[in-house]
């Protein structure tokens, strides 16, 4: 996974705050077929991590591709990855190329 996306970056976000703190738009059957980060909230885990940026497109979450998932489904996958107590991090494969 990810090998066919030469500009992709794996970012590990530690669950350092009670919220992930990103807003996303997009999903299958919209103008933005993969979720794009539109906001990073100060004080959230993503902001604390320092490696996610507004405008990046999320390709995978914990190795699970978001391709083909509609917006609410993609949002649920990300939310569940953050809530899952088995891991103290969430891995995001992101790309700056939209």
């Amino acid at each position: 996974p990810g090998l066919l996306e030469p500009t992709s970056t794996l970012v590990r976000v530690m669950k350092s705050a009670s919220t992930l703190g990103i807003a996303i738009e997009g999903g299958a059957n919209t103008r933005q077929p993969l979720p794009r980060i539109v906001t990073i909230q100060r004080g959230g885990s993503a902001h604390n991590c320092g490696q996610l940026k507004v405008g990046q497109v999320i390709l995978e979450v914990n190795g699970l591709s978001l391709r083909g998932h509609e917006h609410r489904d993609a949002a649920r996958i990300i939310a569940e990855a953050f809530k899952n107590k088995e891991k103290d991090y969430v891995d995001f494969l992101v790309t700056d190329f939209n």
């Binding site: 919220t19 992930l20 703190g21 990103i22 807003a23 996303i24 738009e25 997009g26 999903g27 059957n29 919209t30 103008r31 933005q32 539109v38 906001t39 909230q41 917006h71 609410r72 949002a75 990300i78 939310a79 953050f82």
Partner: peptide
Amino acid sequence: REKRLTLPPSEITLL
């Protein structure tokens, strides 16, 4: 007209 222009915008979700 490109097909993608007919696709709807997405809602935004805060996570």
